[in-house]
Design a protein around this nucleic acid. Structure first.
Lengths: 188, 188
DNA sequence: GCGGTGATGTCATTTGATGACATCACCGTA
DNA sequence: TACGGTGATGTCATCAAATGACATCACCGC
């Protein structure tokens, strides 16, 4: 793969994931990634702000889809249900790529710096969902509470999905988890 | 402050916070921090794993207190209420230092790397609370759901507390927020 | 073919982070 | 008092992350 081949960022993304899996995140340098992609380290940093970002740059698009789903919910929809609609979109999209998700998650789980980055991406989801709720007339602190709680449920559901041997899809696990949160808060 | 003065880690902590406030996180080098503390950069890294950690190393102690509070709840306490007991301890302890909390939070809010670190510290709280719930016989996924949702509520409550002009204490805001989550999930 | 434009490379530099080893202060004890 | 051990700190060297300045290349429209 030479200098002017197309899809530079995709090549970098794939090379990075491969190397993170093969030898671990800490043991992979940006120079390694760039070399495998047929580019230089300097170019890597033109596409990705840092070494971690290469695993997370799809997050913004997913966030847009979630916000769109939230905006699309009928005006009378209660806050938590509107959030659920957004989470279900994310579940559907991610649910289609179980093998990739598991591989990616195993890399992230093994490195706290990557978990940090994942957490802040999900926190960004929560922030934009809260913003969307406020656009719908939901006031604070209800908007932030619904959004943060929803993301917390999503995190647990996703973890269950990638960890479980097989079984249910992400969407079903997410719905179950939302029900379970309702039970927990009801008698807590 | 010379080489063998006592309280090296406290001096480093204070010097770091001062500099982060005065000129910002990015504009502060570890060498700057060490110099103000009368030490060397190498010594800084003996006390703190990285430049961010200096703002977060009290988190582990707080976590211990929370887990102790959770363990101390009567066996019949429902999961969400046991989590609430743990969060209330944290609220009481942090609630005593509002000025410090606000200063520290303004530094953290201004830098995504610091927000990342804060999120992973709170995620660690959630993990240890879930573990504590399982010790009490709560099964998954309820344990993780209750813990993650509780931490989400705490995060929102804390944010409200440091942002608000004055008014209620953190403990009261936390309790209100827990009630509000109950309402939200009930009709969502 | 010419020039503009965007993508990439090259080079230099700062800083974060860590290992190896030396040095210093302090403490207990002979 | 002198001694030696121990832990804290300093010094030095090094690697890798990250970024700015500038050069170079491929491609595209004219």
């Amino acid at each position: 793969m030479g200098r002017w081949e197309p899809n530079a960022s995709n090549r970098l993304r794939q090379a990075a994931l491969e190397l993170y899996v093969e030898r671990g995140f800490d043991e992979t340098t940006v120079a390694d990634i760039a070399e495998r992609a047929g580019l230089t380290a300097r170019t890597f940093f033109r596409y990705f702000a840092d070494k971690r970002e290469v695993l997370f740059d799809g997050s913004a698009q997913l966030q847009e889809r979630m916000v769109a789903a939230l905006d699309a919910a009928p005006a009378a929809t209660p806050p938590m249900r509107a959030v659920a609609a957004a989470l279900e979109i994310a579940a559907e999209l991610l649910g289609e790529h179980r093998d990739y998700s598991r591989q990616r998650q195993s890399v992230i789980a093994a490195h706290s710096e990557l978990r940090e980055r994942e957490l802040i991406k999900m926190a960004a989801w929560a922030t934009s969902l809260a913003e969307g709720l406020r656009r719908r007339g939901v006031t604070e602190p209800e908007a932030s509470l619904a959004a943060e709680a929803g993301i917390a449920v999503f995190r647990v559901a996703f973890e269950r999905w990638v960890t479980a041997p097989a079984g249910d899809g992400l969407l079903q696990i997410l719905r179950d988890s939302l029900d379970q949160l309702r039970s927990l808060t009801a008698d807590g």
